[in-house]
Amino acid sequence: MKLPDSENHIGGNDMIKVMYFAYLKDITGVKEEWLEIDGNLVQNVLNKIFEKYPKLRNAPLMVVIDKKIAKRDEIVEEGDEIRVYPPVCGG
């Protein structure tokens, strides 16, 4: 995970591993999958997810990369595992 001005990023269309948690698994029907992403930002990954699962389009999803919350404009690098969470509610 690097800032957008990094030169070390994936280019064009790449395959990214995405993992779903809690009831997102019910909506997508899978725990994890590889998605072909157009672009290299977290937002591009989300756009692909929204396109594939329209029910999630307005979802307040949280994205975690390398165990840290990732902003929408962060760069996704080759080999990153993208964890996608619905709103959390511990305690």
Binding site: F21, A22, Y23, N58, A59, P60, M62, V64, I69, R83, Y85, P86, P87, V88, C89, G90, G91
Partner: peptide, 23 residues
């Protein structure tokens, strides 16, 4: 409650309910 990845599935008298899934 805001940032730790924890989710709750309630088994209610009228069915199953994921807490916070109202959206």
């Amino acid at each position: 409650k805001r940032i730790v990845p924890v989710w709750k599935l309630e088994k209610r008298e009228n069915g199953m309910h994921w807490v916070g899934s109202e959206w």
